[in-house]
Each structure stands twice: as structure tokens, then as C-alpha cells.
């Protein structure tokens, strides 16, 4: 739903980090609990990634499943739907241990800045 505004944030952060070098790919880590549709994000990136630094860059999305850990029996349960309970003992004293990630992990850039991509000083 808000994938376009997320892409605008990603574009600002990536442009800042790239230091004028051309970006070929952007790796994201996104948890299943973050209500982001990866295909939509990729589509929005194709609209947002304009200009000499970002043009032609691709998003690579590592999609992290949701998992909870039981505070009583220690069982780690991967969730296919969101129910806060332990698959080991059925208890509800669980902590979300993954699925809430929303990270720009890394970018791949050309070694040398593109002459045309260096912002004016």
C-alpha cells in the first residue's frame, strides 16, 4: 500500500551511500510481518529508480519468514499465519524473533564514480 513511499526512502538512502557511483543492485531484507508485497515493491522501484545513479538498478529482496520463540519451552516456531502461540507446548508466552525486518542490507556499485553521476559540488 505504501510501497511507493518506501521506494522513495530507499532511493534517498541508497543515493546518499552510493557517493555518485552507479548502483547495480540494492539488497533488502524484509520480514513477512511488514505488510510489504515484494512484487509491488519491485514494480515501484522501477518507477522510482531514475537518474544516473539508480537507473537500471535492481532490488533483490530476502523475504524473512515470521517466527516466534517460546519463553516456556524454548521451541522456535515458524508462522504460516499470525497466531501468537508455540507449536511445541501450545503456550502463548512467545516472543517474535523474526519477521519484522525492514532493512537496506547492501548495495552493489561501480568502482569508479560515473563522470555524469557526480553531483555538482
Amino acid at each position: 500500500m505504501h510501497e511507493l513511499s518506501l521506494c522513495e526512502s530507499i532511493a534517498r538512502a541508497v543515493t546518499r551511500e552510493a557517493g555518485g557511483r552507479r548502483v547495480s543492485s540494492v539488497r533488502l531484507r524484509i520480514g513477512a510481518l511488514r505488510q510489504v508485497v515484494p512484487d509491488t515493491l519491485v514494480y515501484c522501484w522501477s518507477i522510482t529508480s531514475r537518474g544516473p545513479v539508480l537507473d537500471g538498478s535492481v532490488l533483490e529482496i530476502d523475504y524473512v519468514p515470521a517466527a516466534v520463540e517460546c519463553r516456556d519451552c524454548g521451541t522456535l516456531s515458524e508462522l504460516s499465519r499470525f497466531t501468537l502461540s508455540c507449536s511445541g507446548c501450545g503456550g502463548t508466552a512467545v516472543t517474535v524473533v523474526s519477521g519484522e525486518e525492514m532493512l537496506i542490507v547492501s548495495i552493489d556499485v561501480a568502482e569508479a564514480p560515473e563522470a555524469s553521476a557526480i553531483p555538482p559540488a
Binding site: S9, D108, E111
Partner: peptide, 25 residues
């Protein structure tokens, strides 16, 4: 490998960022 999805192959570098996408907000 870095994949070659974008059409150029030489002189790549990877920059770790590890920044939350919501950090501005």
C-alpha cells in the same frame, strides 16, 4: 556472486548499509 542483471560486469564494489528503511520516519 553479484549476479549480472544490469548489463555491466566490471569493477563492482559492495557497500554494506544495514539501515532500517523506516529510519527517516
Amino acid at each position: 556472486d553479484l549476479g549480472d542483471h544490469s548489463g555491466y560486469a566490471t569493477g563492482r564494489a559492495r557497500i554494506e548499509i544495514l539501515e532500517d528503511i523506516f529510519s527517516e520516519n
